[in-house]
Design a protein around this nucleic acid. Structure first.
Lengths: 210, 210
DNA sequence: ACATGTGAAAGTTTTCACAGCG
DNA sequence: CGCTGTGAAAACTTTCACATGT
């Protein structure tokens, strides 16, 4: 079966919400409750959970720990996955901070910058390499996911170099649109585009429901 | 007519691409060319452009300047819209940098932080206010769009305060999920969730086409 | 009773395919 | 011709509604 990006996105959200519930010592949850936490319909939650193959009980709903385990099993490589971060300006630093300690299996293991003052430092367990070592390090660490956090221009050439070094998935925070092979996953996160969209809906969403 | 988020997103993308073309002095463009720049199908581009009500010519395609003008007319409030930024850590600074000078009509006009060393400074034309002045300043400047760039916990209470001060649209970079009235637009941009999604597709997108 | 899992229906988005035109 | 604009079809996503289980 081929599973859509939307479903994956929601599974990751359910996982996050379930983790919160676990911390609050909630043991079981019904689809309608999880749905309301995720701002979705109960039917959608149930259908999404079909893909991970964990069955709830009709009497007590889903067992939080078990469901969490099933979703994680479905989503993640058990041996862990390494992520590279290109660009250690304000944005790169923020990404390191926001992601640090959030996931046991997925870690930002290398970052790259051209500033010699940053190279060789270690931030949140992530070593900073010179950008010239991008190919070598990426291959050595078997990195498959990369985050581009440089302001512009050479984003495309950085992306090409990453893909040539074995990276299969990119998150692009630069304002440059990237053109890459079709079997590479790219998520574009142009910050200005997000603001423009929000501005449009601030104008038009005044009365109608979403 | 009610226009979907997806179409708006693509229109903003077309606009950006057309701006690039304009800078390269390209005068006209066919739907198939714009489509390939946007990684979409020509039919989709033509259908999207229907909503802005600008008709291309069958002989030379779309006139870049005219089409750009039509899209902008469709998307933006002519008097301009003001954006608030809450949180001036690394992420907030990065957002200011990435958005500065990118849009004539939409500007980040106020930012908020609790650090007294930051308050009253002006960065890229954006004045920093103390977080206690959030309500007053937001109302005074008639701000309708806000960006939440604080790491966690009180994101919900900041969001509530923003909505109570007239904000209609939010971009949430915090890892906290926000619960707000249905007539408020929220875009959640949890950075870790993006990485997790990318990691999943790095594993599964190895051979199949997207 | 009440919640799950799911076939079928409804709704939404994308693509096809072609009339019409310079 | 080779393009646009668009009705109609196809593909995809969400919701409905109910059989089933406890």
């Amino acid at each position: 079966m081929i599973i859509s990006e939307k479903i994956i996105h929601r599974l990751i959200l359910y996982k996050k919400l379930l983790k919160n519930l676990q911390n609050e010592n909630v043991k079981n949850i019904f689809s309608h409750k999880l749905a309301s936490l995720a701002s979705r319909s109960p039917a959608q939650v149930r259908r999404d959970l079909m893909v991970v193959g964990y069955d709830g009980s009709t009497v007590s709903g889903y067992h939080v720990d078990e469901l969490l385990k099933s979703i994680e099993l479905f989503l993640y490589e058990p041996e862990g996955q390494k992520v590279a971060l290109v660009g250690l300006g304000n944005l790169g630093r923020a990404i390191l901070d926001y992601c640090y300690g959030r996931h046991p299996n997925i870690t930002i293991s290398a970052s790259f910058d051209k500033d010699p003052n940053k190279v060789n430092r270690v931030i949140h367990g992530c070593r900073v390499y010179h950008i010239d070592d991008l190919e070598k390090t990426t291959r050595q660490l078997k990195i498959e996911v990369a985050i581009i956090a440089i302001p512009t221009e050479n984003a495309q050439s950085i992306a090409d170099r990453l893909i040539n070094s074995g990276v299969r998935s990119l998150i692009n925070y630069s304002p440059t649109r990237l053109y890459l092979p079709l079997d590479v996953y790219v998520e574009n996160r142009d910050m200005m585009m997000a603001v423009e969209k929000a501005a449009y809906f601030a104008r038009t969403l005044k009365d109608e429901l979403k």
